[in-house]
Design a protein around this nucleic acid. Structure first.
Length: 469
RNA sequence: GCGCCUCUAGCUCAACGGCAGAGCAACGGACUCUUAAUCCGCAGGUUCUGGGUUCGAAUCCCAGGGGGCGCACCA
């Protein structure tokens, strides 16, 4: 059905919120003489013979439309409007006898017809498949979905402002990489026809941003999509949004301060407090967050004191005791990490900074300044989840080449997530990377935390799904 | 990839081996102050798909598909 009467534009003079703000306390039956034009979607309609009430919603809120046979143009057609139709309406701002602020509709225009029904006007849409596939219907029908969208938008905006205030410069670096690097993950592969070469969707932003620090951009960040070819879960989507920030002359302790300040700031701005409840448990994001080394935490939660001098056979036995299949190639660092992930990480609620990871599992982090075999790295655990990962960045090109080569050997031995040697990145390091602290924050998980939802699909507008049918 | 759960009208849900139903939306009608308006009427179905068991299947069984959760992988 095409309607030749649908206009190309509509001269709106006020949003519903503006009308409300201009007339805060009208007495029942009041007439204001204020003529406004409002526009939006018809949410509800109550017909009572020769008068009809409608509820119009725009992006600011809602307002009642008051139409009547004696004063509304084309009243019979107004009565026939369907819920979901977009209309523009012009008339005087009044209060009805019961005191409801209304626009007394004199003229109105259909702006778009809703040919499909949006579902139950009271219960909305709860079928999760329908909500994710037809997000447009979900957003119309479910206020909670709109709230999450708006919170996420404000969160990203506040994050940018917070970093800019600290002097960080926002950049955009390639999503198409010739070598996937900067994280341990399987990439999506694609192909460039003109150059006849394989390309990979980036799995991290890291290596490009550190190149920029080499180039003299002392504080740099990017908020962007990264892609990992992995399974889906309530906490994983194949494409997700990462914040990465790098700061010259800083180390991982500076990054801890940055994370806790940023997250506490966002909570205060978006939730009004740092004391949140998530998944029924309390969480206080006020700095400073607890700091504890991985080995301390393993000792506490696994009940066994281990470190890199613990005999490998003993570590293997401990790991095997927790029903983890042991790979022959694992050294003590990887074994302790496995033990930590199985026994300790699930017990952590946070916020807590888990400090000082084995070098074996951290090829881009700099050696710990006092403990051999460890690197200066932390993960921030918040609400039982890994929210951030950060290091004092490895800036010695020779040492970086050695860790890359160890990764390349693991890759050759069949580890699909291991890194390759990135010669251009090594060349950049040879120009000199100053001492640098770097941080990566999963913004989707942060949005989940701040909006209180428990599945990542609720904070991603169009999550990855199988095709229909 | 494996395990468990789930799929009924546009939406939200009943019926759980015995005639497929309700509310909302839609459609027709009544009503000049409603607030999820109300009231009267009417219509709406490949019960996800395909097999099977049975006198009889939405219901039980098998296979496939979509979705959810868990495991594994990861942030």
């Amino acid at each position: 059905m095409t309607d030749e009467k649908i206009p190309y534009r509509f001269e709106r003079t006020a949003s519903t919120a503006a009308v409300r703000a201009a007339h805060p306390d009208l007495a029942p039956g009041a007439e204001t003489g204020d003529i406004v034009s409002v526009a939006g979607r018809l949410m509800l309609r109550r017909e009572a013979g020769r008068i009809t009430f409608g509820e119009l919603r725009d992006s600011d809120g809602r307002i009642q439309l008051f139409a009547g046979a004696t004063w509304t143009d084309d009243y019979e057609r107004f009565k026939d409007l369907d819920l979901g139709d977009w209309i523009g309406a012009t008339g005087e701002v009044v209060a009805t006898r019961t005191g409801e602020l209304s626009v007394e509709v004199r003229h109105w225009q259909l702006l778009a017809k809703a040919r499909r029904s949006f579902g139950d006007k009271w219960r909305g849409i709860s079928d999760v498949d329908l909500r994710y596939r037809q997000r447009y219907a979900d957003l119309w029908a479910n206020e909670a979905s709109r709230d999450v969208l708006l919170l996420r938008s404000r969160m990203i905006s506040l994050t940018r402002r917070c970093l800019e205030r600290r002097g960080f410069v926002e950049v955009e670096t390639p999503l198409l990489h010739t070598l996937p690097g900067g994280a341990l993950a399987r990439p999506f592969a694609t192909h460039h026809n003109a150059l006849d070469m394989d390309l990979y969707l980036r799995i991290a932003i890291e290596l490009h941003l550190k190149r920029l620090v080499v180039g003299g951009i002392e504080k740099v960040f990017e908020i962007g999509r990264v892609f990992r070819n992995e399974g889906l879960s309530p906490r994983h989507n194949p494409e997700f949004t990462m914040l990465e920030a790098y700061q010259a002359y800083a180390d991982y302790t500076d990054m801890m301060e940055l994370v806790e300040q940023l997250v506490a700031h966002l909570a205060t701005e978006l939730c009004g407090t740092t004391k949140l409840t998530y998944a029924g448990r309390e969480l206080d994001l006020a700095p400073p967050w607890t700091r504890a080394t991985m080995f301390e935490l393993v000792a506490r939660h696994a009940g066994v004191a281990v470190d890199l001098t613990t005999p490998v056979e003993e570590l293997r036995r401990l790991v095997a005791d927790h029903a983890i299949p042991v790979d022959e190639s694992w050294g003590p660092g990887k074994l302790i990490l496995e033990l930590y992930e199985k026994t300790t990480e699930p017990e952590l609620w946070g916020p807590v900074f888990v400090l000082d990871y084995p070098k074996e599992v951290s090829p881009l982090a700099r050696d710990h300044r006092t403990v051999p075999g460890l690197v200066e790295r932390f993960e921030a655990i918040v609400a039982g989840r890994e929210l951030a990962n950060a290091f004092s960045e490895l800036n010695d090109p020779d040492e970086q080449r050695r860790t890359f080569e160890a990764q390349a050997r693991a890759k050759a031995a069949g580890d699909e997530e291991a890194m390759a040697v990135d010669e251009d990145y090594l060349r950049a390091l040879e120009y000199g990377l100053p001492p640098t602290g770097g941080i990566g924050i999963g913004m989707d998980r942060l949005a989940m935390l701040l909006s209180g939802v428990e599945t990542i699909r609720d904070v991603i507008l169009f999550p990855t799904l199988r095709p229909e049918r």
